[in-house]
Amino acid sequence: MIAGANSGGSGDCGTLDAQTCKDAGDVGTAIGLVLVLALWAVVDIILGISYGIYRLCKRS
């Protein structure tokens, strides 16, 4: 997560000024981090439910 947050590069922004270009890059980096966290949470929930079902099937 830390590496992803620091990876926001400065690309070619065409006619935008430097501050607007930096702000747009920061927004893109934030959206990327939110998507990674959401995917992590969804996979964690799926694994938790799967483990719970497995435990219910194995009890005697």
Rank of each mutant, 00 (worst) to 15 (best):
S60K: 15
M1H: 10
L16V: 04
S60Q: 14
A18D: 10
I53T: 06
G32P: 00
V34Q: 04
V27F: 05
L47S: 11
G8T: 07
G52I: 03
R59C: 09
A3M: 11
D26Q: 14
T20M: 08
G8F: 02
K58M: 08
Y51H: 14
D44F: 13
D23W: 02
A41H: 03
A3Q: 11
I53E: 08
A41M: 11
M1G: 09
G9E: 12
L33I: 10
G28Q: 06
M1N: 11
G9W: 10
Q19A: 14
A41W: 04
V36G: 02
G8A: 13
Y51W: 14
C13F: 05
K22T: 06
W40D: 14
A3I: 13
C57H: 14
T29S: 05
V27E: 07
T20N: 06
N6M: 12
V34Y: 03
I46M: 13
V27D: 13
A38K: 01
I49N: 05
D12S: 08
G11A: 10
L16S: 12
G32E: 03
W40F: 15
L39K: 02
A38Y: 01
I31E: 06
L16F: 07
R55C: 10
A5T: 09
G9L: 09
K58E: 06
D17I: 03
A41L: 07
D44V: 08
R55K: 15
A24M: 09
G32I: 00
D23K: 13
I31N: 08
A24H: 04
A5S: 11
L33D: 01
T20P: 00
K22C: 00
S7G: 12
G28R: 06
G32R: 01
L35F: 15
G25N: 02
I2W: 08
M1W: 07
L33K: 02
T20F: 01
S7N: 12
A24W: 00
D44C: 14
V34E: 04
T29E: 00
L33G: 04
V43N: 03
V43D: 03
G48S: 13
A30T: 04
D23V: 05
T15P: 09
G28D: 06
G28W: 01
D12M: 11
A3N: 15
C13K: 05
L16R: 07
L37Q: 07
I46G: 10
L35D: 07
G48T: 08
C21W: 00
L56T: 11
V27S: 08
Y51M: 13
I45F: 12
I53G: 05
G48K: 08
V43W: 05
L16Y: 09
G52C: 12
L35T: 12
A24I: 04
T15Y: 05
S60D: 14
I31Y: 04
L35A: 13
S60T: 07
V42K: 01
G48A: 10
G28L: 02
G14K: 01
Y54K: 14
C13N: 03
G14Q: 01
I53L: 15
V34T: 10
L47Y: 10
L33V: 05
G11M: 06
C13S: 08
I49E: 03
D23H: 05
T29K: 03
V36E: 08
